[in-house]
Structure formats: structure tokens, C-alpha cells
Design a protein around this nucleic acid. Sequence first.
DNA 1: GAGTGGTCTAGACCACTCA
DNA 2: GAGTGGTCTAGACCACTCA
Lengths: 243, 243
Amino acid sequence: MNSLSSDVRLPLYQRLRDHLAQQIANNRWRPGEAIPTEAALSAEYQLSTGTVRKAVDALVSEGILERQQGRGTFIRRPQFQSSLFRFFRFQTAAGERQVPESRILSIEPVTAPSAVAQALGLPLEAPVIRIVRVRLLEVQPVLAEEIWLPRSRFQALLEIDLNRQGPLLYPIYEEVCGQVVAYAEETLTAESVNHLHARLLQVPVNSPVVVIERLARDYAGTPLEWRRSRGHAEHFRYSVDIR
Amino acid sequence: MNSLSSDVRLPLYQRLRDHLAQQIANNRWRPGEAIPTEAALSAEYQLSTGTVRKAVDALVSEGILERQQGRGTFIRRPQFQSSLFRFFRFQTAAGERQVPESRILSIEPVTAPSAVAQALGLPLEAPVIRIVRVRLLEVQPVLAEEIWLPRSRFQALLEIDLNRQGPLLYPIYEEVCGQVVAYAEETLTAESVNHLHARLLQVPVNSPVVVIERLARDYAGTPLEWRRSRGHAEHFRYSVDIR
DNA sequence: GAGTGGTCTAGACCACTCA
DNA sequence: GAGTGGTCTAGACCACTCA
């Protein structure tokens, strides 16, 4: 038997949700692992199954846990590939979806400019890593990306050859640095492309591009990565439901 | 006592949810009205309160109902103003938010071009209404909008002076035509502005604009309105959370 | 067949609203 | 003080998974 520490004025299901979220943030279980069964949680915290289910429901709807009937409830491994597809219609001539290739143009230790320091919650001129890359689909550049990481957590990236890895960075962050991206927030704007990005994207100067800024965080909410991606507006289409 | 008609293989809470959704779509209650209390629904359908709550929970999370503790559960009146603010940062110099004014440039009965007929689910060349307007903030145009409506439901709009109404069309649709917008789906892209829209928005030809296409539906899911809005990219900023 | 999550019951008691 | 939604209990039984 265990007990819930947080604010006693909150409902029990809320306190259990917070307690579980805290343990997930502290890496008590790794992504893909199961948490204790509902019966075990009921017994451990002396709560009815209905109350336990309501706490687990909340974490499931937040995208942190994933239920599988008959098997258990698991820490969800985020699937950020799909978020990319929400924004861009990267398709081959045959119409199938495809993860764009990655070509790293540079990776280097630098000090954080003020916008980056602010986004990542670091002091000005804190040590960071800056990565510049383009994403390509059938030799055509579709996205130009600038990526900033706090050096304290990602030092190990400087010692490997990123161009020999797959096109997705988040699995590499997890394997090489033990850092798991749990959430992200994206902001979209549009602009006329400047000379530098026009060259990287192989489009005429001043054509319209979509700009996507993304701040990615770990389970505890600490910022892990800030990136700014630019893509030609022709490939861009984003849908959202409103109620 | 009443009984649920839908597929008996579905869980009871699901069948009650579908049953209530059907009645809402059939206008059994108007927006702002209360549905029966949980106790009344339990008695009417011979279900426990837990099951009734789960059905109501589903409709609440879909944005169709709204709970108010101690008062009741109400048909939600959609607040589409807020969706506009998610996309554009329309702000006065003082920083406060403001609904942009509306200036109707034209409203006329026409036949549906193929893209419009397809979006609204109408036959080609079906009778529709086309509205062109600009939205202004402190005399500055911020959005140029083209709006298409099925004439069968919106005929009454042709008989009033829209420029003597408020800037929001959805309350007018409800008051004048009895049509309630329940959901909408928006798609975002960007483009270089052409001569016509450059003039309406008072921006240089070829500057980047954001294009928002919106399909609005009633509670039954029938398309009510299709609109395409263009705004200068400088005023545009859209944020989304990803998990 | 043992173990898991999914559905459902029949309540009790609490917090809030409103006349 | 009557009526509403909000929380919580202590289960029972079902559907699914996996050895």
C-alpha cells in the first residue's frame, strides 16, 4: 500500500493522475513498458477501480499512456513522423507517403542567441548545439531546418556521424543521448523566402514559404529542442477541426 | 421509460450517445437549452448514472454539450470568434483583441462552380449564394473572404441588408435562416497574392498571404457553408500542440 | 486458463446553483 | 432547501491476449 502526496483538496483521480505523471517524468518506466495493472493500482492506493480508470483515462487522452485490452497499459512512444505528414503532403508519384531523407549540412557547438536561449529556457550564451539540414524527397529539397539543442544533454551527438543514421532525429536522441521527446508545440507562419533559404530549397527568391517553429519537451515539460523549418508553400496543406 | 434503437452490439453508453446526438441533430433542443438531467436520463433509459455520465462525457468532449455544475447540461452554442483568433493576431495598438469589422462587397445568387458544388455536396450548377467581403481592423483590411452557401437554406439572406448587421455571420445564419453551424474544418496553405486580392488587402502584388479554406457543417454533418479567406502573412500566427 | 482492460450497476455523499 | 452535476465505492461480468 502506498499513498498520494499531492494537494488533498484535489479529487483522488486527479491526485493519482499527477502521481503517475510524476513517476513517468522520472523515468520509472521506459517508453513501451507497461505500468501496473488497474487491479494492482487499486490495491496499492486503496482506490476503487472506477477511480483508477479515471486517472488512467486522463493520461491516455493526454497521449502519455496507451491501453491494449487484454495486455496492459503502456508508456506511449511518441510518433512524430505523423505530425510531419499533417503539414506537408510529401508523396511520391505513385501517391504513397514517405519519410523525407535527411542531409545534415552542419552540426557545431555554439553559444545560444537570445531567441534560442529564451525558447529553450537557458541563460543567454549558454552552450548549445546547432544543426542545419535539408529534407529531400526523390532528390528534391522540401524542407530546410535549423535545430537547436542544449549541449548539456546532447553532447554525445557531436561524437557520431548523423549522416550515417536514419532521417528521424527523435529516435537518435533517445538511443544516443537518452532524451525522450514527449510533447511539442508548433507555430505556423508564412513569409517570402530569402536568398539563403531559396538556394537550399531550390525555389525562386521571394516565393512564399511556410515557416514552422517547433518547441519539443520531455515528459517533465523541460524544453529539449527548438527548431525552425521552412518549406515551399506548394507542398504545404494543414487541416484542423473546429468546434 | 424509453429504449435505445441503434446496433445492440455497441456498448450502452455508445448507443445512448448516438441516440442523444441524433436528437440534437433533429433540433429536439435549441442551442443554449438544457437536456434532461442525469437522473432523468437514468430513469428514462433504465441505465445506471455511471453509464449515462459516460455517454454525456463523450458529447461534452466532442464539444456538443456543456456541463454546468448545479445548473444542468446544455446544448453548446459554438463560439467561432475564438477560432479566428487562433489564426490571426488581430490586436489594437493597446494590445486588446477585437472582432474585425465586416464590409460586404457583393452578395448574389449564382450557380455553383464545380469546386464549390463538390465542397458543399451539391450537384454541379446547383443554386448557391456568393458573398464577397473584407474584414477590417481600424480601417486596415486584414482578411478578404469569399463565401458560398446553398440557396435552398439561405434564400432569406438575399432579402436583408447584411451591411446593417454585426460582423459575425453565424449568428445571422441562425436568426435569419434558422441554420446552426456546429462544426467546421479548416485547411491552411500559403500563396503569393494576385492583383485582385492585393488590391482588396492593400498589400503589394506577390507578397505572401495565408489562405484558409473552411467547410462548416450543421449538427447532422450536412455542409452549410464553404469559405476561402486570405490574409497577409505578417498578421498570421497559428499554434498547435502535438503528442 | 490466468491475467488484462472494457462495460456496467446501484447506489452514497459532496459542491454548487438558484429561488 | 430542492435540484443539479462531480466524485467515489465495491464490486460483477465480458472480451481479449497469451502461454
